[in-house]
C-alpha cells in the first residue's frame, strides 16, 4: 500500500472524517428517534429536518472555554480526553469495513483480530476511570469507580460471547469469520449474539446499565468537570466506541458487510443502524438499574449463560456442522 492510501485510511475512511460523520449522524439520529418516542419534535430548525443541529452543537462546544478546575490534576485532566478517543478509534483498523478496502480485509489483516478487538475495547474504561480520578471531584471519582466495577463484571460475558464465533469457525481472523457466516451459523450464534448485545449495553454505558454516568445520582459521573473541547473529545470517544463495538457485533455475528445481492459498506452501516435503533428503543422504555443489581445480574445470570453458550457452540460445531 502507498503512503497516499494510508493517509486516506487515517484521515478520510474509516478514519477521522468517517468517525466525525458518524458522531454527527448518531447524535442526530438518536436525538430524533428518541424525540419521536417521547412525542416531541426534536432538532427542527437547522438544516433539513434539523440535521445540521448536532454539527452546530459540536462546533459550539469546541468554541467554549476549556475550564480546568482548581482542584483537578491539570496534566491528567487534560491528557485523558486526548488519549481516550485515540484508543477508542484504534480497533477501527481491525474491522473489515468495505469490499473496496484492502480486498475486503481489515486494514490490519491479522489472525488475532478478535483478540485485538477485545483487548482494545477493554482498555477504554480504565482511561475513563482515570478521567474521573483526575477531576478530583467526589461525584467524578464515584463515577470512575462505577466504571471499573461495571467493566470488571461486564467484560467476562462480553469476551466469552465474542469468542463463540471464533470457536465455531476455528479462526480469530475477522475476515474469515465474516466469510464463514451463513444463515445456519447465524442461528447457532444467536444466543451468543444476544449475550454480546446485552454486555455491549453495559460496556457502552447505555441504559439500563448507564450507572457510571447516572445524572440523577452522581451528576454524569466522570463527565462532571469537563466542558468545551475536552467534553467534545470525550463524547467523540464515546460515539466512536459505540461504532466500533456495534461494528464488531455485526462482523462477528451478522456477516459484516455481506448482504443480499451485493456486498457493500452500506449493508454494514444498515446493520449498525438497526443495532442503534434497538439500543435507543431500550433506552426509551427502561429505567436504570442499581449498581449492585447490575453486578448480581451480571455474575449470576449473564456470565453462566455465556459459559453455557460456549458449550452450545462447541456442541454445534461437533454435531451440527460436523466438526
Amino acid at each position: 500500500m502507498s503512503v497516499g492510501q494510508y493517509l486516506f485510511y487515517i484521515l478520510v475512511f474509516p478514519g477521522l472524517a468517517f468517525l466525525l460523520f458518524w458522531t454527527f449522524f448518531v447524535f442526530y439520529f438518536s436525538r430524533k428517534t428518541l424525540a419521536y418516542i417521547h412525542k416531541r419534535v426534536g432538532p427542527h430548525y437547522n438544516g433539513k429536518w434539523g440535521s445540521m443541529q448536532t454539527v452546530y452543537d459540536v462546533f459550539k462546544l469546541l468554541t467554549k472555554e476549556n475550564i480546568t478546575p482548581k482542584s483537578a490534576d491539570p496534566y491528567l485532566f487534560n491528557i485523558m480526553p486526548i488519549l481516550t478517543p485515540i484508543v477508542a478509534a484504534l480497533p477501527v483498523i481491525l474491522i473489515p469495513w468495505s469490499p473496496l478496502i484492502n480486498n475486503g480485509h481489515g486494514i490490519l489483516d491479522t489472525d488475532y483480530g478478535v483478540l485485538g478487538l477485545v483487548v482494545l475495547i477493554g482498555v477504554e474504561p480504565f482511561l475513563l476511570f482515570l478521567t474521573g480520578f483526575g477531576s478530583h471531584n467526589k461525584y467524578s471519582f464515584l463515577g470512575g469507580m462505577r466504571v471499573l466495577a461495571q467493566m470488571l463484571s461486564m467484560e467476562i460475558p462480553f469476551f466469552l460471547s465474542a469468542l463463540s464465533p471464533a470457536l465455531l469457525f476455528g479462526t480469530m481472523n475477522l475476515y474469515e469469520i465474516m466469510y464463514h457466516n451463513t444463515w445456519l451459523t447465524t442461528l447457532i450464534l444467536l444466543p451468543g449474539a444476544i449475550i454480546y448485545l446485552i454486555a455491549m449495553l453495559g460496556i457502552l454505558e447505555q441504559p439500563p446499565f448507564n450507572i457510571p454516568e447516572a445524572e440523577q445520582e452522581i451528576v454524569y459521573g466522570f463527565y462532571t468537570e469537563y466542558a468545551g473541547t475536552n467534553y467534545t473529545l470525550l463524547k467523540f470517544a464515546e460515539f466512536t466506541e459505540m461504532l466500533v463495538v456495534s461494528a464488531s457485533a455485526v462482523v462477528l455475528f451478522f456477516g459484516g458487510y455481506r448482504g443480499l445481492f451485493f456486498d457493500s459498506f452500506l449493508w454494514l452501516f444498515l446493520k449498525i443502524v438497526v443495532i442503534a435503533i434497538i439500543m435507543i428503543g431500550i433506552r426509551a422504555a427502561n429505567p436504570r438499574l442499581r449498581l449492585d443489581q447490575m453486578l448480581k445480574f451480571c455474575w449470576s445470570v449473564l456470565t453462566p449463560l455465556a459459559v453455557l453458550n460456549l458449550a452450545w457452540v462447541l456442541f454445534a460445531r461437533l454435531y451440527i456442522l460436523g466438526g
Partner: peptide, 16 residues
Amino acid sequence: FFGTMGLHTFMMWCLD
C-alpha cells in the same frame, strides 16, 4: 418518579 431512574419518556407522555 421514572425521571429519577433516568427514563424521561414517561415524563413526556404524562406532560402530554
